[in-house]
Design a protein around this nucleic acid. Structure first.
Lengths: 351, 351
DNA sequence: TCTCTAAAAGACACCGGTGTCAAAAGCAAG
DNA sequence: CTTGCTTTTGACACCGGTGTCTTTTAGAGA
């Protein structure tokens, strides 16, 4: 696009160069850049041509300084699932593509006791307009408060509304978990195991609620021996699977609060030569790459992560983005997760 | 750390505020910030105290403007493997932690014909000091030339040296693939299948070379029927597995050019009730999360991606980073990949 | 005490944009 | 041709830092 090939040594053209070439003041060029309406069509064209000819690109640092505001938004995450982060990021980039904004991606160590200080340092240094918090750190109220106190806008992404609607992008996980478990029940499963997510995580609580509600709706209850703790890690799935599948009366189906743990349970089933889905149905959550890479492919819940990225960006900086998007669900501001059926689910074996 | 809690409305302190409080000129404060040596200990202390008291953080945009150089480095990737990107990014962040640098992460669509224009726009707008190119886009010479022409430093990450040593961070994939395949041979495998990576990828070519060299070293050759095309995708592994395991005389072991395809092959083995590793050994490449999530866990090659991130940062901007790192292997400038043995490999079934 | 020199500190312009406000230009009406 | 108003443009300060060069200060030696 730039008409001029910038050699290694040649200086980047500035607004002054454009102004000189177009025979106007730099302020006028600035007006063209910023789409001011008080400018004659003739001048605008002349300036546009000069810009084109020089291959001028405004210096974002200078703009940031003059505007007393930079054009950065930050994405903070501490995510066990890399694919999720990247998909979300892609959604955000989709949203800001035609804007002046740039995206800073920042991993955060949730387990560090210096976490808040690290984030504070980062935000103070970069001063982004806003920050998007991915789960699980989105659930940290201190973090949201920190953003607030620093004057940094924020949006929290979660499995359920965590904050005021404008600070929130969420999906209806609970509902869809209910749907998934309902399918198991409909297939005839009565003894359904559950592998929980980590204690204190909202996402884990939502999935658990969805599970329990579906059970209750079917008139079932969850026996203690079928209720296993977990932490979203593969190893936890192994542990839970070992115990559940060693029971005198093992479950005919197991719902795991994420795909990694489901993969762990499935590994145990394989090791014990328990056929999946013939003798054991398994459902996970996330639709991570793992879900399709394991055998048999895992039925799971997919949350609309990329779309949530788009929406998060629009919630965060609507004033910087062109175009509007449809509100998700006006009442709950949540996007729809979906149950994805694959090969890991079947009716229970006949007795 | 900051002694002052910045309320939403209160202005961020500037260098002028610090200067006023410390009773010195702003230039002196600047000297303290930039660790100039021509400053008395007394003044330095006074300024430091003022900085501390106000919670002053220099405005990076203003610095970038005054220095005629910003403090950004970019990470460009188009990677099928999200975990790799995040691990590499973590390495880069490790390296730049104590510096003034910030990291911009940028996904790139390799398949788009506007790819070069997109990257050009990005680089012209952000003007990072340097860019780090992750495979496979690191193999694109036009991209490197583009960086060069824009005066943006670059480092290319690859499975083998792709450029001058200072523009290059690589690992010894070929060698380690050879080692892995050597293990198969040592176990007694003679009929070993191969699933290639995508055509035109340097990483794929390196893995293939390593494979063929190991075969040759054992006095074996690769039969055409055992040589399958692939593209690093799960589905390609399925296709290759279907064909290889339907052969009249199927291989007793299969080396796949990445883990995803290995997972595909393994799925086919499960579907065909072929025991892994009893009747079929499988080796992958990447040590992605998939490798441990599938059953049995996959033997694979791990490349030191995080360490490569550290090194890439040091190669790119040594002048901005404190501390030095040991050169990897002075001759080849490559880091060591390692063969990770898990449960997917065993001696061939007795005939 | 005075001179000389090196070290320390400051004054001021400048980086590349935008905000403010005043000046110039355009145009209709008198 | 003026006047009066609106539209368009420009001059100049300013954002928050750093570079350059000058001035001030401190300390050593005469």
């Amino acid at each position: 696009m730039a008409a001029q090939t910038t050699g290694p040594g040649s200086r980047q053209p500035t607004i002054n160069d454009v102004a000189a070439l177009a025979g106007v003041s730099k302020k006028t060029v600035s007006r063209v850049i910023n789409r001011s309406e008080f400018i004659s069509e003739k001048t605008r064209t002349a300036v546009r041509e000069a810009i084109e000819q020089l291959g001028f690109v405004p210096n974002p640092q200078a703009r940031a300084l003059a505007f007393r505001r930079n054009f950065l938004i930050a994405l903070l995450h501490d995510n066990p699932n890399a694919q999720t982060v990247l998909n979300f990021q892609q959604g955000v980039l989709d949203a800001i593509k035609d804007s002046d904004l740039a995206l800073l991606v920042r991993p955060v160590d949730r387990t560090s006791d210096k976490m808040l200080d690290d984030v504070r340092t980062f935000l103070e240094k970069q001063r982004p307009i806003g920050a998007m918090l991915l789960p699980p750190i989105s659930e940290n109220d201190d973090l949201a408060a920190l953003c607030d106190s620093l004057g940094v806008r924020y949006v929290r992404v979660g499995s359920a509304p965590l904050d005021d609607p404008q600070h929130c992008v969420s999906s209806n996980d609970r509902e869809v978990v209910g749907e998934a478990v309902g399918k198991l029940v409909a297939l005839g499963h009565r003894r359904i195991g559950f592998v929980r997510g980590p204690v204190g995580f909202r996402s884990a609580a939502e999935r658990e609620k969805g599970f329990l509600e579906a059970l209750a709706a079917a008139g079932l209850t969850l026996a203690d021996e079928l209720n296993e703790p977990g932490n979203y890690r593969f190893a936890a799935g192994i542990d839970a699977g070992e115990r559940l599948l060693s029971l005198a009366e093992p479950p005919t189906a197991i719902f795991c609060s994420n795909d990694e743990m489901a993969a762990g349970v499935m590994s145990v089933a394989h090791a014990k030569s328990i056929s999946v889905p013939g003798a054991l149905s398994i459902i996970g959550f996330d639709d991570s790459p793992t879900a399709t890479h394991i055998w048999p492919a895992l039925s799971t819940v997919r949350w609309p992560i990329r779309e949530m990225g788009v929406r998060a960006a629009h919630n965060l900086v609507p004033d910087f983005l062109t175009g509007t998007i449809q509100p998700a669900d006006p009442d709950t501001a949540s996007l729809a997760s979906t149950f994805v059926e694959r090969q890991s689910v079947a009716p229970p074996a006949a007795r």
